[in-house]
Design a protein around this nucleic acid. Structure first.
Lengths: 216, 216
DNA sequence: GACCTTGTTGAATTTCGATTCAACAGCCAC
DNA sequence: GTGGCTGTTGAATCGAAATTCAACAAGGTC
């Protein structure tokens, strides 16, 4: 009846299930049974793989963070133009809408970080990595003469990540007028000022006409 | 033995107790008994005043927010110089350190806002009010010719509040090198750029020499 | 095809916090 | 002072979720 799975597979499933359950019920109000339900198992089975639920939740957060960061890196990996790179990175740091699971999970984490040192460390690491990512883009752009930085790259990078973070919270909290598009513009306003570049994304040479979308 | 208190007094006590308990144990993991303990009462007594704990928690959050905002307003109330006003406001929006109870409570709220519409509304209101506060300072400064705004005042104000928020989270999460002082400088870096003003706080005319502190 | 190992269930048990409530104590009115 | 509110306690009860565990099923191995 129930498909038995290998240890590794099941643990992967459980991490995903835990992510879903936490987004829905909250990092530290989620119940063992809710995780089990998301995984299509009973609480006993979950406990068999993770005797302590907290370990599972931590791994799930870790995985979520990692995925979030890797996705951003991947999105700009094969782009060379610093302007496009910067604009795209800003976009990729914001939730698409209030339901965005990845960002909601990060917000959950932020709330708990004041009390939970491990969660705090996790978030701090993510922040610093994102800062480095922006710093790299900025430095390269400056070296190419595309950007004229109005402050040192670390300052700018820290502020950019901070802005993303904060607007993520606002969007997830359903600010009535401040959506992803507005947030992008707000951050770009700063980015333009501080890079001395208008940041009008030069269009990507279209590979095939039908692959293009009208301005979303 | 136990000092009986009037309804109004006790409710005020309970709100304070709830605030402390939530900072310590988390908005949605705090136990009735933990609130009672903070208030020096039994759970029964708490229930007598607030049959539903959630009402108390909400009132406590509301009160905390209100206090936070009012304090900021008060701090700049009798200052006329826009530069000093702006710098002081930036400072007052950041936690003093990772233990800052007011900001920690707001972070808790932020984490829960993704799931709880009421909390979300509360935070959104606070955000908008803070934006207005900054906008006022910026507009007045611009009118006086002290600031030359590089973007419309709402954009700048929104970004300033966003930066405060985000650095609040970082500080509360104990970023190893990013403390309140660094955060102030980061935000000022943006503020200088966007106001065209060096924002060197002109010293307040000292009332008495001994009241001055060396640069903290 | 009997034998292990491993993952899973479901029901019994335990734990822990919320809830209820009868008794009681301080306070004010008269 | 006595009587009646009002706030508070502490013990009893209830309920929900975690935990335990004996039984069982699905694959793989020889």
């Amino acid at each position: 009846m129930k498909s038995r799975k290998s240890r590794a597979e099941r643990r992967q499933d459980l991490i995903e299930a835990a992510r879903r359950a936490m987004v829905q019920h909250g990092t530290d109000t989620v119940l063992l049974n809710q995780v089990a339900e998301q995984a299509g198992l009973t609480s006993g089975a979950v406990l068999y793989h993770y005797p302590d639920l907290r370990d599972l939740l931590l791994e799930a957060h870790h995985a979520g963070m990692e995925r979030f960061y890797e996705l951003r890196v991947k999105k700009i990996a094969d782009i060379s133009d610093p302007v496009r790179k910067l604009v795209l990175t800003i976009r990729s740091g914001l939730p698409t809408d209030a339901e965005d699971a990845d960002v909601r999970l990060l917000c959950e984490l932020g709330g708990a970080a004041g009390r939970n040192r491990v969660y705090a460390a996790l978030l701090t690491t993510l922040y610093d990595r994102q800062v480095s990512m922006y710093q790299m883009i900025l430095e390269v752009g400056a070296a190419q003469g595309v950007f004229t930085l109005a402050a040192d790259s670390q300052t700018i990078a820290r502020n950019l990540v901070a802005l993303e973070d904060a607007y993520g919270y606002r969007i997830v909290a359903r600010h009535p007028t401040l959506h992803a598009a507005e947030a992008v513009e707000l951050i770009l306003s700063y980015a333009r000022l501080v890079t001395g570049n208008p940041l009008e994304a030069p269009e990507e040479p279209a590979r095939s006409p039908r692959a293009r979308k009208p301005t979303a």
